[in-house]
């Protein structure tokens, strides 16, 4: 799936075209193309070893690609752009011997934030993340979840225009997962572009606007989340209704959980026709919708199908 670079617009924050990178004989990335638009949460998905991290490292200019072009924040990566990008890698790390404050300060300074600003911004984040009383503790005295929060603060403290975040929810309990989720949505509302790599498909459904799925170093799925789910929808509807449903010729009930049923439609039959039949039969319908596959289903189907 290649993409024409001409389709890039001012709205594009990242544009990756036919990217390839090998390490010796191992082809980490073979042909990856996608665009990330301003102000969206973009899912960078793929099974382990698919080439996601290598792609991210090439976007950040940590690795040079063997082939392909990358445009970040309106052009090739430059030194000064690093201050406008926040990166939380999959392999989390902080200075274990430093205090939370020292650690956040150093990483923020390297992103070009003035010391005075760091102090006020850090104080606000510590408050928001319940870390105020822990700010003078050494990082290795903190729980894994707390360390994770310190890392997220370090990723956002310089107010980046683009955030690239690998597995943002790993190691977090449900309360903190919600906290981080809200924080990312808040960042998006403020206009920040977010690239998120995650294995939690329900988070993708909930948060991402668009996504790319990479497998074996190649783009295998790319587009808007809803659009992808629709394009992978089997011909089926989901109906929630009390009582029994009338038999509709050609329609088969494939599953039932209480009052919720999934009905498979024969080829050529529109969902509208099923709804009309049910209304005509006087069924008290509570919910009626196209049965979209979950991102989980699509992920498994596409990745397993590629093997």
């Amino acid at each position: 799936m290649s993409m024409n670079a001409a389709s890039s617009s001012n709205n594009t924050v990242i544009s990756v075209t036919n990217l390839a990178k090998s390490f010796g004989a191992a082809k980490a990335v073979q042909d990856v193309s996608f665009e990330v638009h301003a102000g969206e949460i973009f899912g960078l998905l793929g099974p382990n070893g698919a080439g996601k991290t290598t792609t991210i490292r090439m976007i950040l200019d940590i690795f040079k690609p063997d082939r392909g072009t990358i445009s970040v924040l309106g052009g090739p990566m430059r030194e000064d752009k690093k201050a406008r990008i926040g990166y939380l890698p999959e392999e989390r790390g902080l200075y274990k011997d430093l205090t939370v404050e020292q650690c956040v300060t150093y990483l923020a300074e390297l992103k070009g934030v003035a010391r005075a600003d760091i102090k006020t911004r850090a104080a606000r984040f510590f408050e928001q993340f319940d870390l105020t009383e822990h700010r003078r503790k050494k990082v290795n005295e903190l729980s894994k979840g707390m360390q994770q929060k310190v890392q997220i603060i370090s990723t956002l403290i310089h107010k980046p225009a683009l955030v690239i975040i690998d597995e943002p929810f790993s190691g977090l309990d449900p309360v903190n997962t919600r906290l981080v989720q809200d924080l990312l949505l808040e960042q998006r509302a403020q206009g920040t572009t977010i690239v998120m790599s995650t294995h939690l498909m329900y988070q993708v459904e909930e948060m991402c606007d668009r996504l790319v799925l990479i497998d074996h170093g190649k783009t295998v799925l790319y587009g808007g989340v809803d659009e992808i789910r629709r394009s992978h929808a089997d011909r089926a509807v989901r109906v929630v209704a009390k009582g029994e449903l009338p038999a509709i010729p050609g329609v088969i009930e494939t599953s039932r959980k209480g009052n919720e049923r999934t009905l498979a439609l024969p080829h050529g039959m529109e969902s509208q026709h099923v709804l009309e039949q049910l209304v005509a039969a006087g069924v008290p319908i509570e919910q009626f919708e196209l049965a979209l596959p979950t991102m989980d289903d699509i992920f498994v189907k596409v990745v397993a199908g590629g093997k």
């Binding site: 940590i62 690093k82 990166y87 790390g93 902080l94």
Partner: peptide, 12 residues
């Protein structure tokens, strides 16, 4: 400490 990758996204 695995902090090197974050550093690499900030400086050469």
């Amino acid at each position: 400490n695995r902090v090197i990758e974050v550093l690499m996204s900030s400086l050469t």
